[in-house]
C-alpha cells in the first residue's frame, strides 16, 4: 500500500521551509553585532530558522492522511489582475472614469454571465460614487477624464 500524505500540507510546508531558508540566508548578510547590542541580522535570522522548523513540522504532520487538491480559479486571478493593471495604467494618464470602467470591465469577465451594457452602467455609476467620495468630499487631486493624445 502506498504511503498516504496530504499533498496540500506538503506543498505548504515546503514553501514555508523555502521562505525560511531564503530569509535566513539573506539575514546572514546583515551585521550580527554583539550579544549586548545585537545587530539588524539577529532577529530576522531567528525568524528564518523558526520558519524552517515550522515548515518541517507541517510536512511531517501531513503524513498518514489524504488531502484534496484545492481548485485554483485561474480565470478569476487573471481577470482581477487585468483589471488592476488596466486601472494602474489608466488612472494617471486617462483619468478616473476610464480607469474605473476598464477595471470593472476586466474584473467582471471573471464570471460566466457577461453583458456589456450593465457592466458599462456599473462602471459609470461607480465612477460617480468614487468621484463623490474621493474627489468631491475628500478633495483629492484626481483627474476625472483626460485625453492622453
Amino acid at each position: 500500500m502506498p504511503r498516504q500524505y496530504d499533498s496540500v500540507d506538503v506543498i505548504g510546508g515546503l514553501i514555508t521551509v523555502t521562505l525560511g531558508l531564503v530569509a535566513s540566508y539573506i539575514s546572514l548578510g546583515y551585521p550580527m553585532g554583539s550579544t549586548v547590542s545585537i545587530g539588524p541580522g539577529v532577529f530576522p535570522l531567528i525568524l528564518g530558522l523558526l520558519l524552517i522548523g515550522l515548515g518541517l513540522g507541517i510536512v511531517l504532520g501531513a503524513r498518514g492522511r489524504e488531502g484534496e487538491a484545492p481548485a485554483f480559479n485561474l480565470r478569476a486571478v487573471v481577470c482581477m489582475m487585468a483589471g488592476m493593471v488596466a486601472f494602474a495604467l489608466l488612472i494617471g494618464t486617462a483619468g478616473l472614469v476610464p480607469a474605473i470602467v476598464a477595471c470593472v470591465f476586466f474584473s467582471r469577465l471573471a464570471e460566466p454571465e457577461f453583458r456589456l451594457l450593465p457592466v458599462l452602467v456599473l462602471g459609470l455609476g461607480l465612477s460617480l460614487l468614487c468621484w463623490a467620495v474621493f474627489a468631491f468630499a475628500l478633495g483629492l487631486p484626481l483627474r476625472i477624464l483626460e485625453w492622453p493624445f
Partner: peptide, 30 residues
C-alpha cells in the same frame, strides 16, 4: 457580480491615493 467589481475599484483607488503610485495598485493585486 455587482458587488465585487465595486469593491475592487474601491481598493484600487484607495491604494492609488496613498502615494499616487501606480506600482502600489499592481502590488496590491499581487
Amino acid at each position: 457580480s455587482i458587488l465585487y467589481p465595486g469593491i475592487l475599484v474601491f481598493i484600487a483607488l484607495g491604494v492609488y491615493t496613498l502615494n499616487y503610485s501606480f506600482v502600489d495598485v499592481i502590488m496590491v493585486g499581487v
